[in-house]
Lab assay of single mutants.
Amino acid sequence: MATGGRRGAAAAPLLVAVAALLLGAAGHLYPGEVCPGMDIRNNLTRLHELENCSVIEGHLQILLMFKTRPEDFRDLSFPKLIMITDYLLLFRVYGLESLKDLFPNLTVIRGSRLFFNYALVIFEMVHLKELGLYNLMNITRGSVRIEKNNELCYLATIDWSRILDSVEDNYIVLNKDDNEECGDICPGTAKGKTNCPATVINGQFVERCWTHSHCQKVCPTICKSHGCTAEGLCCHSECLGNCSQPDDPTKCVACRNFYLDGRCVETCPPPYYHFQDWRCVNFSFCQDLHHKCKNSRRQGCHQYVIHNNKCIPECPSGYTMNSSNLLCTPCLGPCPKVCHLLEGEKTIDSVTSAQELRGCTVINGSLIINIRGGNNLAAELEANLGLIEEISGYLKIRRSYALVSLSFFRKLRLIRGETLEIGNYSFYALDNQNLRQLWDWSKHNLTITQGKLFFHYNPKLCLSEIHKMEEVSGTKGRQERNDIALKTNGDQASCENELLKFSYIRTSFDKI
């Protein structure tokens, strides 16, 4: 039985969820670079991206490699990797027998973001014989899940209580170790020597080791999670996991709180800001991140802002960003909400898709409305799209047979046209069989910064309504002859009103 693990408890099935942008060198404390989270699957090609990484700022997932063999891993080693800020997950990587050479110096898994409450997941690794993470000293947050690894031993010899604050939620089941077939031998045991430290858990006094050649490092209890030197002297209180010299914040392997210019500090002093819960960055760093993602459509890219001495992905609820200094300031009234469309555009074809934009005031991208039916549609669209004030790209209304009016965009005031449909149009209306009105132009103002209007096959939309939009939106004169079809717009509506004058002759039985 794995020490510190839980057996036999019912657990939810383990679901495996399925960018080499360097964020800056980590400095003297770390020998390499800070790398983003990685999802490495199918083959070993991307694994080489770990070569210079000291910190993975995010998670590391290595999974679904069915053609790899043990010899493929023999020359692979990433000794610079010290810390993973989120979680480490391995799933069905064939041929991998140990992690001792792959990650010989991995010391800390912070667990800032977890995989279903777990910071370390080893699942269905069919050839893994031992973990071998002999320098792993601290899992700051989260638990361990090690399950269905039929060859995995050296679990009962690990004292997880020396690595985690609590072992109650560890789930370590259905491994070879369960069948008591392992016969784990710690260093020196074969020669009758006791080389590794022994600890007591559940009444068992057991030597602690990761492999037959690597003991588990056990520091004096007084050192807590700070770690200790090879001689057993406690590291500085700002260290986490390990250090090369005692009581020196510049000799830590990793930091308990924050890293700044080669030393570990309790908090980031001005003019620095907390970033990702582990390091200090200056304003320029946060500003660069903001600008890199301002026009990016890459998933996970955030326009970072500053709030409460932190550089964070977005302002919290009730705050909006001051564009001059990136500071989050309290909103006066309802907060603006910028919604970034991942692929640059979004099609609204149902109430469900409209709900995804609920509360958005600025759309960074283009909207395509293609709704053919739905219950209580006008009210639903207004509830979900009615706060949109600005669209950076274009607005396209296409084959939306259920629409009679666009009044559900009740606050839309600006279409920038930074991206144009077919390279020309910022407003595009095609084949809307029941569209009769755009907006009530006596109450609604709309500016279209650039781009043209396109109207074709809107049989109940009168040309007068379209011409009014040209005047109000500032697009009059931009359109070419064929942009607004004269014969297919309003051709099934009563669009022309003329005053009919009647004269009559009164007659009676005795007068003409």
Rank of each mutant, 00 (worst) to 15 (best):
R141H: 09
S284D: 02
S143N: 13
L174I: 14
C243D: 04
P187L: 12
R263S: 07
I122A: 05
S143C: 04
V108H: 10
D101N: 07
C311R: 05
D261W: 03
H302W: 12
I56F: 00
C35N: 00
I139H: 01
F115V: 13
C328L: 02
N295V: 03
C153F: 02
R256G: 04
N43S: 07
K80P: 01
K217L: 11
I146C: 02
T199N: 12
P36K: 07
D277Y: 11
C331V: 13
G188L: 11
W278L: 06
Y304L: 04
N150W: 09
L44N: 04
L29P: 04
H212Y: 13
T199C: 10
L240S: 06
E147I: 15
L174C: 12
R162W: 14
H59D: 02
R69C: 13
P269L: 08
D248E: 05
H59Q: 10
E231L: 08
G300D: 11
V93I: 04
P187C: 06
S244Y: 04
P313W: 15
I146M: 09
Y134A: 03
P31T: 13
C252Q: 00
L90E: 00
P270D: 11
M321V: 15
S225H: 13
T68Q: 09
C182Q: 12
K67G: 03
G132V: 01
S213P: 12
P334R: 15
S98R: 02
S166Y: 08
P313T: 10
E207H: 12
V144K: 01
R297Y: 02
C186W: 01
Q216W: 10
D169Q: 14
T250V: 06
T189E: 07
L88Q: 00
F275H: 07
V108W: 06
D288R: 15
N282L: 09
V253M: 15
P330N: 10
Q204Y: 03
S54K: 02
A198Y: 12
R113L: 09
D261R: 09
D86H: 15
C255D: 00
T199F: 10
G232Q: 11
H212V: 05
L174H: 14
V55P: 00
G132A: 05
D169Y: 06
Q245P: 01
L114W: 02
W160L: 06
G203Y: 11
N52W: 02
A230S: 04
I84F: 00
R145L: 10
S296V: 15
K148S: 15
V55S: 02
P270H: 09
I185W: 15
S161G: 09
Y273T: 09
L260A: 08
T229I: 09
P269T: 14
G111A: 02
R145A: 11
R256S: 07
P313K: 05
C280W: 00
Q216T: 11
G58T: 01
A198S: 06
G58Q: 00
T68K: 13
H127Y: 04
E238D: 15
L88A: 01
F66W: 14
H236M: 03
N202V: 05
D248K: 03
T320F: 14
N52G: 06
G37K: 04
G192P: 05
N322Q: 14
S244M: 14
A119M: 00
G188N: 05
G318T: 09
L63I: 03
I109K: 00
R74Q: 05
G333A: 02
C186N: 02
S323R: 03
Y272H: 04
I146W: 00
T194P: 12
M137H: 13
T194S: 11
M125D: 05
N308C: 02
I222N: 09
P70M: 10
L60T: 01
L155F: 08
S213N: 10
G37P: 06
C264A: 00
E181H: 02
F78Q: 02
K80D: 01
Y154K: 14
T189I: 12
N52R: 11
P31H: 03
C239A: 00
L240W: 00
I84M: 02
V93S: 01
R110L: 09
E151G: 10
A190R: 12
Q276P: 03
V218I: 13
I312L: 12
C280V: 00
N43D: 05
L128F: 13
L260F: 05
G32H: 04
S112I: 15
N42D: 10
D247F: 06
R110K: 10
T85G: 02
R113C: 12
C335Q: 04
K294W: 13
F103S: 00
M83Y: 03
F66L: 15
R279V: 10
N117M: 11
C243P: 00
P197T: 10
S77W: 07
G95T: 01
C153P: 00
S77N: 11
I185Q: 11
